[in-house]
Write a protein that binds this DNA or RNA. Structure first.
Lengths: 181, 181
DNA sequence: CGCTTTTTTGAGTATACGCTCTATTTTGAG
DNA sequence: CTCAAAATAGAGCGTATACTCAAAAAAGCG
C-alpha cells in the first residue's frame, strides 16, 4: 500500500509522540489516547497506519535497543576508554532512548520473548567487548576480565539510574571516575 | 471501628493473596479480581476492610521492604557488610519487589505517587545508612562517605539490573566482589 | 435470647482502554 | 481536470477494571 506524504508525516508524529511518552510516562502512561492527543491524530488515522498500539511501542523500543550500541561491528571502539565514552555518549546524547532502554530492560519488554532476548544479547555483547578491551589493556585472565567488565558496566548502568533520578547528577564525570579506578 | 474475628481473618487472607500475586504476577497481574478470587472474598467485604486496592499493595510492599532492614530499630549499629548483605537478600529474596523498586527508580512504571515516594525514601535511607557505616569503618569525611555510598549503591543497582536481565548471573557473588574493594 | 455491630454478598456503576467502521475530505498520478 | 486511492474524523463497541450500595447473614455482648 503506497503512502502519500501526509500519511508518512502522520506516522512520524505518532512515533515521536510515542517516544516522548514512553520516556516520560513509561509503558502504563503510554495509552492510545495519550499518543493520539500528543500527535494530534484521531484513532481512525492511527489504525490506517498501524495495526495496533503495541506495534508502535515495539517499533520505538527496538529503536532504543539498537541505539545503545551504535557500532555493532566494534570498528575502532576497542579500548576501554572508547567503550565507556560510547556509553556516556549514548546516555547523555540520547536520554529519551536511554530511558526507554532502561525501562524496557527492567520492566520486561511487554512479555515479548524475542525482544527480551534481544536486550539480553545486546547487553552480553557489550560485556564481552568490554572484557576483551580490559584483557588487552591489563593482561589479566579471561575470567577476571569478565568479572571486571560486569562490575564496570553495572556501575555505569547504576550511575545512569542515578542520573535519571537526579538530572543534576554529573553522570559523565562519575562514569569516567569509575572507569579509571 | 472494632473488628470481629472474621473480619481480621478475612483481612489476613486478602494480604496473603496480594503477597502471593505480587511475587508471581507482578504489579500488572495483581488485579482486584485476582486478589478477591484467591482470597475467596467478594468486593463488598474487601471494601469493608480496605479503602482501595492500592492500600493493600502498598501495605505488602512496605512490609517486604521493612523486613530486610538489618537493624530496623537502632540506626548506627549496622556494618557495611551487613547493609550489603541486606541488599543482596532484598534483591534475591524478593525479585519481583526488586523489579518494582528499580522500575520506580527509572520512573514511569508506577503512577502511584505514594508508592513512588515510599520506594525513593527507602533508597535515600539506604544511602545514608551506608554512608554512616562507611564513615564508621574508614573514618573519612561525611561528604566522601556519602559519595562512596552512592557509588556503591549505584553498582549494586547495576548488578541487580544485570541479574534481572539474566537470571543465571551470579548477583550475590558480584555484589560481594564490589563491596570488598 | 435480644439487640447492636460487624461481615458478607453480588448485582450494579463508572470509567478507561484498545479498537472498529462508515462517511467524508484530501491527495496526486495520468 | 478526473478519479481511484489514501487519509481523516469521530461516534461508538466490547471488555476489563476499580469501586459502590442496599440488603441479608453472622457475630458477640449483656
Amino acid at each position: 500500500m503506497a503512502r502519500y506524504r501526509p500519511g508518512l508525516q502522520t506516522r512520524d508524529r505518532i512515533l515521536e509522540s510515542t517516544r516522548w511518552l514512553l520516556a516520560r510516562a513509561g509503558l502504563d502512561g503510554t495509552t492510545l489516547a495519550a499518543i493520539l492527543d500528543r500527535a494530534k491524530v484521531r484513532s481512525g488515522s492511527f489504525y490506517n497506519l498501524f495495526d495496533s498500539k503495541d506495534e508502535v511501542i515495539l517499533t520505538v523500543i527496538k529503536e532504543a535497543i539498537n541505539a545503545v550500541d551504535p557500532h555493532p561491528d566494534g570498528v575502532g571502539k576497542d579500548t576501554v576508554e572508547e567503550l565507556v565514552g560510547a556509553y556516556i555518549e549514548f546516555i547523555t546524547g540520547q536520554p529519551t532512548l536511554a530511558k526507554i532502554y532502561l525501562q524496557t530492560a527492567v520492566g520486561g519488554a511487554m512479555n515479548d520473548e524475542a525482544l527480551a532476548h534481544r536486550v539480553l544479547s545486546h547487553h552480553q555483547t557489550r560485556v564481552s567487548r568490554l572484557a576483551d578491551a580490559i584483557r588487552r589493556k591489563t593482561g589479566t585472565t579471561k575470567a577476571k576480565s569478565q568479572t571486571e567488565a560486569e562490575l564496570l558496566l553495572a556501575g555505569l548502568n547504576g550511575l545512569a539510574f542515578h542520573w535519571l533520578l537526579d538530572p543534576s547528577f554529573d553522570f559523565a564525570a562519575r562514569a569516567r571516575d569509575l572507569a579509571s579506578r
